[in-house]
Nucleic acid binder design. Structure first.
Ligand code: SF4
Ligand code: SF4
Lengths: 133, 133
DNA sequence: ATGAAATAGGACTTCAATAGTCGTATTTGA
DNA sequence: TCAAATACGACTATTGAAGTCCTATTTCAT
């Protein structure tokens, strides 16, 4: 509960890696070997990060990935959003249709949880990749 | 990911309910009916909250639950800790033995995530039940 | 041209956590 | 003594996380 997924962690490690090499092109193999991350899992994370325009892919031999933006313009929040494909929602009613929660109408805590949600977003959004290089 | 469990939500709703009635004794049935929460699930949550000394149980007929502390001395963090039985850990290495993470030694993000963890704890700890009554 | 190195991406399995259900025992006030 | 309440273990079902496997496509270097 309240744990980041491994995919998000792998994405952060990879992006930090590229940033730490001054945006030199890096391959999945290089990163998965260095950090001991399952190759295929990382590969798919990188593909999502590419589709999310946080990194750029370079196909073919000698290919790999570089950042698509400067490291201080990529936040942990960005990575979570892109990798998970959904916004952070501390409760069901924040990440899906409110009607999906069967007690939505009776719920007395959604407003306070909304405040917590807002604060959490701020925490994740204010941590930039440039700080962790 | 990063979602509170229903159990925690139920616990918060129940504690807020009791607090809103000025610590009048309340039963599981009363609360589960009012908020449309599955009876048995709430019952077990209340038992955990009792063992965690956030509320007090009164057994037998005419029994029920009251708060064990004042509402401004119970935080969302307290409820999470008691209901989940474990501390909030945004990453595996914060909530279990670091060796359990196979990439712990190579991990380059545990320190920055530790900072995020610290900030999250503050967010959860600073929201007291008294604020949501 | 051809082959190796790389990304792209779908299909699948495994495992653990979440959410809920059921049954029974115990306590206690009226 | 009964009814109303808490206590608590065992079970099922569903979902999501994590990882594996396989094949296609792109592109550089020879
Ligand atoms: S409505 Fe209340 S219970 Fe339902 S998801 Fe939102 S916060 Fe949780
Ligand atoms: S060590 Fe790094 S990867 Fe492993 S759990 Fe901690 S943060 Fe996540």
């Amino acid at each position: 509960m309240l744990k980041l997924s491994k995919k998000v962690e792998y994405g952060l490690i990879a992006i930090r890696h590229i940033a730490s090499l001054n945006n030199q092109i890096s391959t999945v193999k290089e990163i998965s070997d260095k950090y001991n991350i399952p190759n295929e899992v990382l590969a798919k994370v990188m593909q999502k990060l590419t589709r999310g325009k946080l990194i750029m892919s370079h196909q073919g031999a000698m290919g790999g990935y570089t950042l698509a933006r400067s490291a201080n313009d990529i936040s942990v929040m960005d990575v979570i959003g892109v990798v998970e494909g959904t916004q952070v929602g501390i409760a069901q009613c924040f990440s899906e249709a409110p009607e999906n929660c069967s007690i939505y109408l009776n719920c007395t805590i959604k407003n306070p949880l909304g405040k917590i949600q807002h604060n959490l977003e701020h925490v994740f959004a204010s941590m930039k990749v440039s700080e962790i290089v």
